[in-house]
Nucleic acid binder design. Structure first.
Lengths: 358, 358
DNA sequence: GCTCCTTACCCAATCGTTTGGGTCGGTCGT
DNA sequence: ACGACCGACCCAAACGATTGGGTAAGGAGC
């Protein structure tokens, strides 16, 4: 019936250490906790040594609940993502976890499934848990959640997706889109389409806008029916790909999907229609997930530094929690050209297209 | 400088409610906390009503740190996985999160990167956080961690991978392997290879063993050099695929990769070597991740109920935490045949093989 | 009218830490 | 030789909730 028999509650406390050393618990606390600033003055060098030795010997580890209760901070941060089974967010989260662990913070993650209701609910759960701050990886354009959190003085930063006026750690998605436009233009394409992702996600919107802007600068045009919204998964990419092929008029010679998974889905649709990706049609993805390079037809993709985006989000959040103003960071992407769009001269001529059409 | 100015610390406490109602804090606590068992007897119906109304009005939410301190339980469970960027584990975690939320528990996840040192370190961090229990998704064969945790009376269950003698929520991997053997045998294959995954993971080991056993029952044989260990990612699959093709003697007509990602990597290797998957060589994966069906060449795969595995792990852990003995659960897998192995008659004859060889 | 229940509460200790303030015996400066 | 100061501690009040014990008033039963 004692503590250790009833469970694993062997946990040694400050009081235990104090009793064993014959000194007061507050002295032990100061020695163990304070970073030599307060520690000096709390106990003699000899006593401090004894305290530290015993703490190590007994395996003392402070009770975080008690500490939190007293200090009003939990050293926990909440992370909300659309879904962790999206490898992009999962990778960013790895960066978050790593950086948080580095500054002695724990992280709670929750999935919002990109549902506005659920975002709020999950945020409330985290706040009820008294997290010290939030990292939102799923912000929707026009969502009022960010304003509400600001009003409530909840420290938070955005990750993955940005929202004007709030600090975020994202990829330079616009720049990434421009890289793709340059690449496709240089390889001779003039008729392109974009699988643009969800309209509420800045990632897809910015990548699309970057592409379109650059394409215009280069002298090209992207008809609006060639910009298809889509889900971010393979299924969404496949549907968009199918839709593209069903449009009247010649099919595009190149397709930019704002996400690797959508690109993979589109590749499936093209192949099912008898097109050979990399020969009949070029496909470019985004994020350069570990899959891209390993696919049967390796996928050209824009690498976004996902781990770094996650790490940076933590750094920013720490500063926000400390009351500082922080600026958004846009991490630089890099294009990796692979077989799905590598060959320069394959772009079909108008004549070819007419033939295929006929 | 007051609490609410210094941050968002507006948090209303039991004491606040009690003061406003002119009753004692303990009465408020009993009304709000107890599930009508203790609540009855704590206050009159009228008072209870007033308490509940005011609590709702003021938006009272109990301080979990204070509660934990008093009750010695955190309602938090720790989850350790090899890596969350593995879609399989991420999906299981979604199941965990959902089930945990359902029973009002929070979850901490950490990545161990399949490193023994890191597993221990992460487990210690979670225990230092005083989680009520652990779900281990990364147990290694022969690891002593499970024994150590048992000795320390830490409630835990295993997920994804099993370990004899400890409760686990896994797929029936052996059965899954048998399904694949039946399928390949029926479609005429006699010369097969296995990309077997890491030897420390029961998933790969069991899937391989199930396949091999069934194959023997059917009268086939699997030479040991045809069972290649591999990492679980695409890179690992590609390497194993390349190695297979370099072996002396005729290449196998079918390959079973114990994981979809490894299968995708292998498909890449085969294609690079000029083989057409689904025609020259059959490939089967495992887990039926969302990618499998959407790949350019849709991948035959064994679906494991990942969400369910995660949910069940939580249920089991709750029972372990309650002091019950629980049995392991092996969830039933299901085979989905697709183009990568669909056609029955393509298996190359020995003559063909000889020709290719020559 | 007395005891004995209920009913409807209140009291106070406790969980493990932190932290603003003592206190007490010496040492230093003059 | 005397006050100021310093080093090395101790005290006790929090933080917010839970919970084993009261206790006072009112009614039932004899």
């Amino acid at each position: 019936m004692n503590a250790s028999a009833r469970g694993r509650r062997a946990a040694v406390t400050l009081k235990d250490l104090a009793a064993e050393l014959g000194i007061h618990v507050s002295t032990v606390s100061r020695v163990l906790h304070s970073d030599t600033a307060v520690a000096r003055g709390a106990a003699s060098k000899a006593t401090a040594e004894r305290v530290r030795d015993l703490a190590k010997l007994r395996g003392y580890s402070p009770d975080p609940q008690a500490t939190s209760l007293r200090t009003r901070r939990t050293r926990a941060i909440g992370v909300i993502v659309p879904r962790l089974s999206d490898i992009v967010l999962a990778t960013m989260y790895e960066g978050v976890e790593e950086a948080a662990a580095g500054s002695n913070h724990s992280t709670f993650v929750m999935n919002s499934h990109d549902d506005l209701e659920e975002q709020r609910r999950k945020a409330e759960i985290m706040l009820a848990r008294r997290v010290d701050g939030l990292i939102l990886g799923d912000v929707h354009a026009g969502s009022s959640l960010v304003d509400d959190l600001t009003k409530r003085h909840v420290p938070f930063v955005l990750m993955n997706r940005r929202y004007p006026g709030f600090p975020s750690s994202t990829c330079d998605d616009t720049g990434g889109g421009r890289l793709v436009a340059d690449h496709l233009w240089e390889t001779g394409h003039r008729s392109v389409a974009i699988i643009a992702g969800e309209p509420y996600a800045s990632t897809g919107v910015d990548r699309t806008a970057g592409f379109v802007d650059r394409w215009h600068e280069l002298g090209g045009e992207v008809p609006s029916h060639r910009v298809l919204p889509s889900r971010f998964d393979t299924e969404g990419g496949r549907r968009a790909g199918e839709e593209l092929l069903q449009q009247v008029g010649p099919a595009p010679t190149a397709v930019f999907a704002v996400n690797d998974f959508a690109a993979i889905g589109a590749m499936g649709a093209f192949r099912a229609a008898g097109l050979v990706v990399g020969q009949d049609i070029a496909v470019v993805g985004f994020n350069d997930t570990s899959l891209a390079a390993q696919l049967p037809i390796p996928l050209t993709s824009v690498r976004s530094p996902m781990l770094e985006i996650g790490r940076a989000a933590v750094g920013m959040l720490r500063r926000v929690m400390a009351g500082e103003e922080v600026d958004s960071v846009r991490h630089t992407p890099e294009l990796f050209v692979r077989e799905s769009s590598a060959s320069v001269a394959f772009a079909r001529t108008e004549a070819d297209v007419a033939q295929v059409q006929g």
